[in-house]
């Protein structure tokens, strides 16, 4: 069955930072809650970790006019179209799904951590215990069963919505037009367009841990997009050459005894 390309929209202007998404994600994905410390912030755990695939980032911000804002941003996998993690994954554990999202097949993960260093958004997290990486798969199992991702399902304010790609991009721009000011759409203009879009309350540069102009690292493009096909071509060439040699010169036969040519021994 043909599935529509999906986009999740995170409207930060509607988020009340209740963290229902953070907990619902753990519940559905059966991730444990670990002991934490109060470190002087509502943000806890302090960062994404192997058992925390989505996290509300709390940030106090005073703009140049002196106005104070408490910014909330739900962090998590952006599900890039041009996904660096999928490019570098050597085992096929990270892959594009029929929804356009980036899925993770844990049983294939070999714990090489290439995706951890490749991701422009710093999303995948490695667990030493299982020797695997973890990240949001936008509840692939739920999407397959026509259910909303756990975070979207639980969101009480309507800050999280999901739908067809074009409709959601349109919705995001309509919302920004309605709000005006510094609000902006984040996600559709880079890495081939992400399948998670933000309506940001402030300019992207204001937010912690949010790259302004994320891209697939150049070295990955060189290695995986240019040199990898060349290497495959070379490997194919070796095979084709050997076959051609077989056709033209026939198989190599064992030398007859006594008829050795000079040299050897």
């Amino acid at each position: 069955m043909k599935r529509p390309e999906l986009v999740k929209l995170i409207d930060t202007t509607l988020c009340s930072a209740c963290r229902g998404c953070q907990v619902a994600c753990k519940q559905w994905n059966e991730m444990p809650g670990l002991r934490t410390k109060q470190i002087g912030s509502y943000q806890n755990p302090p960062d994404l970790q192997w058992n925390t695939w989505t996290l509300i980032r709390f940030q106090e911000y005073v703009n140049d006019k002196g106005a104070f804002k408490w910014l909330f941003r739900k962090d998590g996998c952006m599900h890039c179209t041009d996904a660096a993690c999928v490019k570098v994954c050597p085992s096929g554990a990270l892959h594009h799904t029929e929804f356009g999202t980036v899925g993770l097949n844990s049983s294939r993960c070999i714990g090489c951590k290439e995706c951890v260093s490749a991701c422009p958004f710093d999303i995948p997290r490695y667990s030493q215990e299982t020797d695997k990486i973890y990240k949001c798969d936008l509840c692939y199992d739920r999407l397959r069963n026509d259910a909303l991702p756990a975070c979207v399902k639980t969101c009480g304010t309507g800050a999280l919505t999901i739908g067809g790609k074009d409709a959601m991009i349109k919705k995001a721009y309509a919302r920004v037009k309605e709000l005006g000011g510094d609000t902006n759409v984040y996600g559709d203009k880079f890495v081939g367009g992400t399948h998670v879009l933000y309506v940001l309350d402030e300019k992207a540069k204001v937010y912690d841990n949010l790259p302004r102009d994320p891209s697939v690292p150049f070295s990955i493009i060189v290695w995986k997009d240019m040199l990898k096909p060349l290497a495959l071509l070379a490997a194919g060439g070796v095979l084709a050459g050997s076959f051609l040699h077989y056709i033209l010169h026939g198989p190599k036969l064992p030398d007859e005894p006594g008829k050795e040519e000079k040299g050897g021994e």
Binding site: R19, V23, G33, L34, R35, T36, K37, Q38, G40, N44
Partner: peptide, 13 residues
């Protein structure tokens, strides 16, 4: 007693 909630809000402040 709920691990997910305690993880999100662990101590008095």
């Amino acid at each position: 007693w709920q691990a997910w909630l305690l993880e999100a809000m662990p101590e008095a402040y």
